[in-house]
Amino acid sequence: MTGVWVLLGVLALGGVAGALLRARDGRVRAAKSGTSTLPGRVSDALAPDGVTLVQISTTFCAPCRHTRAILSALAEKTDGLTHVDLDVTETPEVAQALSVLRTPTTLALTPDGREVFRVGGVPRGQELLDALKPHLANA
Rank of each mutant, 00 (worst) to 15 (best):
V4K: 10
H135I: 02
P123N: 03
L53C: 09
G120S: 09
G34E: 01
P104A: 14
S57D: 08
G120C: 02
R102T: 13
A47F: 12
T59Q: 12
V116I: 11
L7S: 09
S43A: 14
H83G: 06
V16H: 11
D87R: 04
G125N: 09
A12R: 02
A97T: 07
L20Q: 15
R124C: 06
E90T: 07
T52L: 12
G15L: 12
E127I: 00
N138Q: 14
V116W: 00
G3Q: 11
A69T: 15
E93W: 11
R114S: 09
V16Q: 10
V100S: 07
L86T: 03
V4L: 15
C64D: 07
A31P: 10
P111R: 06
Q126H: 08
K133T: 12
Q96S: 11
V51I: 12
T89E: 15
A139D: 13
V119D: 06
A137M: 01
A12M: 04
A131T: 06
L98R: 05
I70M: 11
P92E: 10
D112W: 00
V84T: 11
C61P: 00
Q96H: 11
P123R: 02
L71D: 07
V51N: 02
G50E: 02
R65F: 01
S72N: 14
S99C: 07
V51Y: 04
V100H: 05
A23Q: 10
A31N: 12
D25N: 08
D130P: 13
A69V: 13
V84I: 12
V4A: 14
A97Y: 08
L46M: 09
G80K: 03
V119K: 07
S33M: 00
P92F: 07
A108S: 09
W5P: 03
A62I: 11
A19P: 13
F117G: 14
G40K: 14
